[in-house]
Amino acid sequence: MAVEWHPAQRWLHWATAGLVAAGFALAWVMTSVPFRQMALKFWLYQAHKSIGLLALLAVVARLMLRARLGRRATDLPPREDALAAAGHAVLYILLLAVPLLGYLTADTAPLRIPTLFLGLLPLPVVLGRDAALFGVLVTLHRVLAIGLVVLAIGHAGLALRHHAAGRGVLAAMLGRRSAL
């Protein structure tokens, strides 16, 4: 285990958090914009998709760093530390699954609207239009996205609680010198 988080790990953690929050908020906005405001709706969907894919890239980069640098040792009691690690594993799984399912949702959608990464780069079609599959994927993507955000809020709450209890986990993730 590492003594401190690598700065890249810290930055990527907060970037992921920001991207997930933004993508999630945008999801509800984009779907509630009336159909007739097509251009706005189109670009909100594109923004949602690009933000989600950036989150995916950030998570992949984080996992690669973590494979090399490991996780920072915590000052939590061993049982809580193990629970935290398990919770983080679930977060990582959802962080990978939600954008991937989002991609397939867009991919199988009834209107063949391309995914333009950052508004420019058209991404390839994998499965193509499929109404039945789309119905399943859109629900799965939505439910797991809600699961991810609920879990992340719980996760943030626990981080704040540990902080209030005088433990160094949050300070370390924020890059403040912590006395372990």
């Binding site: 189109f42 209107l111 063949r112």
Partner: peptide, 9 residues
């Protein structure tokens, strides 16, 4: 067409 973005059928 939708201005080069995509086409609806």
């Amino acid at each position: 067409g939708h201005f080069g973005l995509f086409t609806s059928e």
